[in-house]
Design a protein around this nucleic acid. Structure first.
Length: 544
DNA sequence: CTCAATGTTGATGCT
DNA sequence: CAGCATCAACATTGA
């Protein structure tokens, strides 16, 4: 017994950084902490940066093949980055709560660091891990570095609540100090290399990065690899995006095109989502450029404005565990959406019969990224504009297909577009015909992604039902045979849906002001009061 | 309490 | 082709 204790006390202690999001070595305060501590006593410590991969989640998580590939590439690049710093990435297979007690013991862990996260799943997981760490006398330090501003700090400046308008949000963060962007850590001394544990002695590849074959269960669903994952590519893309300072300084999102053949915006979003690129670094770089160009665009339309939209939604989401649902969500207006599986399937797979909508949905499936305004067009079409299907259904499809899918942003934008929260001018409806014509009058985008319509001329490619049957035959694409008839008539349904929105808002208003109880069909028993408490202080006062 | 101003990105038709 | 009014009309904010 005494020998055991003796050997344990002389065994080196391990410092662990746990990667989740934040798949980078630059501006990573939690990683930096572990490296810094190791350097204070290189003979006492060894360092193990880890990523946990639960093989069970591959089957149920809403992640499409393209995003699995992005993750695989990001992990592989991260491993390379760490090897240049005399370390490596240790990918450990299993569930966090089952793994950590074993790792704490196996590696004699002293310190665990990670980047904090506001997603409910992560909050719950991290609380459980912190408990386990306490039991094993492992010190835990967390750092807020996925966002520029800490959502908790923003709320503290707004009477403890998340601001629900962007302008209010701007007013608050304008008073906050900017976080310091951190350099990537310096190389670790050789002595810090951990000696092989029992598992590594048995199998030297036990902690290796997953291969593409291991992560992508449906390789047939992989599209072109237009946006490879990883920090290296993120930083390359950052530099390419910032090269033209005039463009950066004059950027206005609403003036960029949703249907250009090549992206009209930076496509840094997937890299921000996985943390391959630090939002704080991007912010600092943008500020530097704007300082050299006094006449520049401003939030909400500027590039800085785009980053702050991300912050806005993160703050709102941090305050609401049900942010991704209609029921029990304090921000969200309650609407009796229809269930319409055939229409949902048509939208999901780009078979609505509206070429502009279908082209966007097919680009999304193939490439994993679509322009923000393209997301507006298809989201409006699915929900309040045409199909009257719940935003949660659209959220699910985006969650699967978008490389940049980020819980807070996806839910927040779906609520915005469906006029369920944050945005209320539901009478502004996108036309699935007219909207795309503004930036692509010839329909080149449609020809690329809906090739069966390639021979349709510009004057009817946005509305192929206007071509006569003989013309359709000439163009080699007959509606109902080679391409679907439109599943709804926009001119008719969008007017009907505006009236439905008016009715839904009226009910919601009466519920809020206490004139009427919420619809029992819509509300969960526990969600009743909550729906009104944040929405309106006026209503809450009246109730008291 | 009321009331006016405001809101990242609508469509249409007119000047 | 940019700018503007109109359509019908929302919630939030702040005076």
């Amino acid at each position: 017994m005494s020998i055991e204790i003796e050997s344990k006390s002389t065994q080196r202690r391990t410092l662990v950084h746990w990667f989740r999001k934040g798949l980078r070595v630059h501006d990573n305060p939690a990683l930096l902490q572990v490296f810094d501590v190791a350097r204070t006593a290189p003979h006492k410590y060894s360092v193990r940066p880890i990523f946990l991969l639960d093989p069970g989640i591959l089957d149920w998580l809403q992640v499409g093949a393209n995003r699995w590939r992005f993750l695989q590439q990001s992990l592989s690049d991260l491993d390379n980055q760490l090897r240049e710093l005399n370390s490596r990435l240790y990918v450990v297979r299993g569930k966090p709560v089952e793994l950590f007690p074993k790792l704490f013991e196996r590696w004699n862990v002293e310190l665990l660091t990670y980047e904090s996260d506001i997603e409910p799943y992560a909050v719950q997981r991290d609380a459980a891990v912190q408990k386990l760490a306490a039991v094993h006398q492992v010190h835990v330090d967390t750092h807020c570095s996925h966002t520029i501003y800490n959502p908790e700090v923003v709320m503290a400046r707004n009477l403890g609540k998340a601001p629900i308008t962007y302008q209010k949000f701007l007013g608050i963060v304008d008073q906050l100090k900017l976080p310091k962007v951190r350099e990537k850590p310096e190389k670790l001394p050789e002595e810090v290399q951990p000696s092989e544990d029992a598992l590594e002695l048995a199998d030297a590849s036990v902690y290796d990065c997953p291969t593409l074959e291991q992560l992508v269960k449906r390789p047939d669903e992989l599209g072109d690899n237009k946006f490879p994952g990883g920090e290296t590519e993120a930083l390359r893309r950052l530099e390419a995006s910032l090269r033209d300072e005039q463009w950066v300084a004059s950027f206005e999102k609403p003036k960029t095109s949703p249907n250009s053949l090549e992206p009209s915006t930076t496509v840094l979003s997937p890299y921000l989502k996985f943390g391959c690129l630090s939002a704080r670094l991007l912010y600092e770089r943008l500020k530097g450029i704007l300082a050299r160009h006094p006449k520049h665009s401003k939030p909400p339309v500027s590039l800085v404005g785009q980053l702050l939209w991300r912050e806005f939604y993160y703050t709102a989401a941090a305050a609401e565990p049900n942010f991704d649902r209609m029921l029990g969500n304090a921000y969200c207006i309650q609407i009796a959406w229809n269930e319409q599986p055939d229409h949902l399937a048509a939208w999901t797979h780009g078979r609505t019969g509206y070429p502009f909508i279908d082209a966007i949905m097919r680009q999304l499936r193939q490439e994993g990224w679509i322009h923000h305004l393209a997301r507006h067009a298809v989201a409006c079409f699915l929900t309040r504009g045409d199909l009257w299907i719940s935003w949660e259904e659209g959220q699910r499809v985006f969650e699967q297909l978008l490389l940049d899918q980020d819980w807070a942003l996806n839910a927040g934008n779906w609520m915005w577009l469906s006029a369920s929260a944050f945005f209320y001018q539901y009478f502004r409806v996108y036309s699935p015909v007219a909207f795309g014509k503004k930036t692509d009058p010839t329909g080149a985008y449609i020809r690329k992604y809906v090739p069966e319509l390639a021979k349709y001329p510009a004057n009817c490619i946005f509305e192929p039902w206007k071509a006569t049957l003989s013309a359709q035959r000439d163009y080699g694409c007959v509606l109902g045979k080679d391409y679907p008839h439109r599943i709804v008539n926009h001119d008719i349904v969008h007017k009907k849906n505006i009236k439905r929105m008016t009715a839904a808002y009226k009910v919601n208003r009466e519920v809020r002001t206490g004139k009427q109880e919420p619809d029992e069909e819509l509300d969960e028993p526990t969600g009743k009061r909550k729906a009104s408490s944040i929405k309106s202080g006026r209503a809450a006062k009246r109730r008291r």
